[in-house]
Simulated scan of single mutants.
Amino acid sequence: MPKNPYYSGPRSNHFDGTYFFNPDGAAPLGFRHLLKWRFGDKTNQPWPEHAESPYKNAKPDAKLPEDTLRLTMVGHASFFIQMGGLNILTDPVWSERTSPFSFMGPKRRNKPGIDFDDLPQIDIVLITHNHYDHMDLATLKRLHEAHAPLLVTPLGNDTIIHNKIQDMNIKTGDWDDVIEFEETKFHFEPCHHWSARGTRDRRMALWAAFVIEHAKTKIYHIGDTGFHDGINYRAASEKHGAFDLAILPIGAYEPRWFMKDQHQNPFEAAKGFKLCNAKRAAGHHFGTFNLTNESIEQPVKHLKEALELENIDNDLFRPMRPGEVWDIL
């Protein structure tokens, strides 16, 4: 077995031949720090066993016109995007747990905002990285069997998926690559994160953000990221100009000593929203799976405070709940 079982390719400014890394950034803290967090940190806030969304489950239209942009929240980092006449899913998770095991691990606290059987034909699935709360192989298998979509993901993740779903149609890309589907472009962009499915494969598959571009419409979608001094936000704006929508993580950020480098908090997300020159933002990565120490509603509370500090209208940056539908264009 090769040292990296997922990917072998040329070295780059973010791949050393075995491991991917964040240029001028930080690697995730190690196992000793993980144990310190799990067993030594006493700041963990309790979550309810079940959290009801204020929105009813959405029943999406089969297709929308090309000049329409509609966003529907499924839960956590899973969105249903209708744009450019396409139906797109990001990091889809319909499973009850985000774990290698069906009987243990973070459990879903609210039901998906769209019933799986109510999904219209899915054209594209975007997978930002291989953590279990973003790459759920059971859901991907269901999607493949029901819709046979094209899956777009960063380098190395195709190996993981094909081990489970051999004939899934997958295209991979490195940062700065572009994949075109019909008249829509999917740009792979850097974000400050990491990857792992177990204890021995850390940083062996790439992570990425995406810019989705159709005609004059652009979305900047980030599944997970540390703020990284705003470097990637500035770079995205310089490269792509203004965005109609940014989809930004606002949860899984406490305690800061452990999470800061890999998970931005709502105050950093608000700064990133301004730096990337987006007109609107959808907040995600909160309220569905209890992954870190903050309470279930703390990200929403902190986002409201952050928007006030940054003088951003609440209607422009929404923390989206399962079943919520937002017509952007």
Rank of each mutant, 00 (worst) to 15 (best):
P5F: 10
P10F: 03
F21L: 09
A26P: 00
A27I: 01
L29C: 03
G30Q: 13
G30E: 10
G30L: 09
R32T: 13
F39L: 15
G40F: 09
K42C: 05
N44W: 15
E52S: 12
K59L: 09
A62G: 05
M73A: 15
H76D: 13
S78M: 01
Q82K: 07
L86C: 06
L86H: 14
N87S: 11
P100F: 02
D115L: 04
L126Y: 08
T128D: 02
T128C: 05
N130H: 01
L140D: 12
K141W: 05
L143M: 08
L150F: 01
T159L: 04
I160P: 14
I165V: 13
D167M: 04
N169T: 14
K171L: 06
G173R: 07
F181Y: 15
E182L: 13
E182Y: 07
H192E: 06
R197H: 04
R200E: 02
D201F: 00
R202W: 11
M204E: 08
M204W: 01
F210V: 00
V211K: 02
I212P: 08
H214D: 04
T217P: 05
Y220T: 07
T225G: 00
G226V: 04
N232L: 07
N232D: 15
H240M: 11
A242F: 14
I250T: 07
Y253S: 13
P255A: 06
M259D: 11
Q262R: 11
Q264P: 14
N265I: 06
N265M: 10
A270V: 07
A270F: 05
K271T: 06
G272T: 01
N277H: 07
F286W: 09
L291V: 10
L291M: 15
N293P: 00
P299R: 14
H302Q: 11
E310A: 13
N311L: 10
R318M: 07
R321C: 00
P322F: 06
E324Q: 15
D327T: 13
I328C: 03
I328R: 03
